[in-house]
Design a protein around this nucleic acid. Structure first.
Lengths: 187, 187
DNA sequence: GACAAAGTATACAGGTCTGTCTACTATTTG
DNA sequence: CAAATAGTAGACAGACCTGTATACTTTGTC
C-alpha cells in the first residue's frame, strides 16, 4: 500500500485523538502529514472515509497492542484476565493518552447505524470476545457474564483515567474488583 | 434571571448532547431557541462561555435528578447504593440518551486545566462524593474505596450503554457487581 | 529512454463558523 | 409619559471548512 496513505492515517489518528474529529480539519492533517490535498482525495472520497479508515486501522493496531502485552505479562488464562488491567494502567500512563478513541468518536457521532458507530461497536464487541475466550480457557463456567463484568470495569477505568485524571488509581481499583470477580467465578 | 438566557442554555444542552460541541454552531442554537444573535452575545461573551454555563447548569440538574430518584427508590443508605444502578437504567432508556455529557465534552476538549475540563472533573468528583456519603451512612468501613469501585462501574455502564447499545444489560451487569461489592464491604 | 502513475502546489467555489455592528421594536420601570 | 433596558432581524467581516480543478514534477516500470 501507499506510504502516503499510511502517513495520512497515522497523522489523522494522532490529531483526531488529541483534538477530536470535528475540530480537526483536512488542511491541518495535510500540513502535519506533508501531503498534498489531491493525494488525500485520491485515497479517500471524503473526510468521513478517512475517519473510517483511521478507526479501522486503530481497531487492529490497538487490539494487537493490547493482546500482545497481556500475553507477555502473564502465562495462564486466569492471570491474563487480571493482566488486562496492568496493560490498561500502562496505556493510561502514556503521555499521548486521550481516552478511548472509539468512545470519543461515539460522543461526536450520535446517529445509530452509521458506519462510524458500527466500527466503534464492533471494537467493543471484539474486546469483550477476547476476555470471554480467556475466561473460557480458564475454565470459568459463566464466561460470558464475567467477560461483561470485566469489560464494564475496563470501560469505567478508561473514562475515569481520562476525565478524573487519576490514572493509576483507576486501573488499580478496576484490577482489585476484577480479582474479586474472578475468584468468585472460580469457586 | 432572563428567560431568554435560560432558553439558550436549555437549547444548547439538547444540541450539544445530540450532535457534540464543535458540530453545533451558534446559528443552529439561535434558530432552535428562537433568539437573536445579539441577545446571546449580551449574555455570553463567547461560545465557550455558553458551553461552560450549559455544563454548569447540567451538573446541577443532573445530580439533582439522580439523587432525587435514588432517594425515591430506596430508603436505607445500603439500598440506595444499589438503587444508583436502577436510576442509571432508567436514564439509559430515555430516548434522548446520548451518554454522559461530561465524558463527551472531555473527548472534544483534551487540554487539561481548562475551565471546561475542570467542570467535568468536578462533576465526577461530586458523584463520587455522593456515593461515598451513602457508603458512610451505611456504616461501611472502607467507604472511599467502595465509592471508587461503584463509580467505576457506573462509568462503565454509561459508556457501554452508549457505545454498545445494550442499555438494560449494561445497567443490570453493573448492579450485579455492585451487590457483590457492597455485600463484601459489609462483612 | 519513454510513458504512465502518483505526487506537489495552489487557486477556487460554495458554504459555514464566530463575533460585531446597525437599525428598529417591545417592554419595563421610575 | 419618558427613558432606559432588553429584545429582534439581519448584514457583514474575516476566518475556516470540504471538495474540485489546473498545471507542473517526480517516480517507477516496461
Amino acid at each position: 500500500m501507499s506510504v502516503k496513505r499510511e502517513k495520512l492515517i497515522e497523522t489523522a489518528l494522532e490529531l483526531f485523538a488529541k483534538n477530536g474529529f470535528h475540530a480537526t480539519g483536512i488542511d491541518t492533517i495535510l500540513a502535519h502529514a506533508g501531503v498534498a490535498k489531491k493525494t488525500l482525495y485520491s485515497h479517500f472520497r471524503t473526510k468521513d472515509e478517512l475517519i473510517l479508515a483511521a478507526l479501522r486501522q486503530h481497531d487492529g493496531e490497538f487490539r494487537n497492542f493490547f493482546m500482545k502485552n497481556v500475553e507477555a505479562l502473564a502465562d495462564t488464562p486466569e492471570e491474563r484476565l487480571l493482566a488486562v488491567f496492568d496493560v490498561a494502567e500502562a496505556w493510561f500512563s502514556q503521555n499521548n493518552f486521550y481516552g478511548c478513541m472509539f468512545i470519543n468518536a461515539v460522543g461526536e457521532y450520535s446517529e445509530e447505524g452509521t458506519a462510524i458507530r458500527e466500527v466503534c461497536k464492533e471494537f467493543k464487541r471484539l474486546m469483550h470476545s477476547y476476555m470471554k475466550s480467556l475466561a473460557e480457557q480458564a475454565g470459568i463456567k459463566e464466561a460470558d457474564e464475567l467477560a461483561s463484568e470485566l469489560a464494564l470495569l475496563l470501560e469505567g477505568s478508561i473514562v475515569t483515567a481520562q476525565v478524573s485524571e487519576q490514572r493509576d488509581k483507576a486501573a488499580k481499583t478496576a484490577k482489585r474488583v476484577a480479582k474479586t470477580l474472578i475468584d468468585e467465578a472460580n469457586s
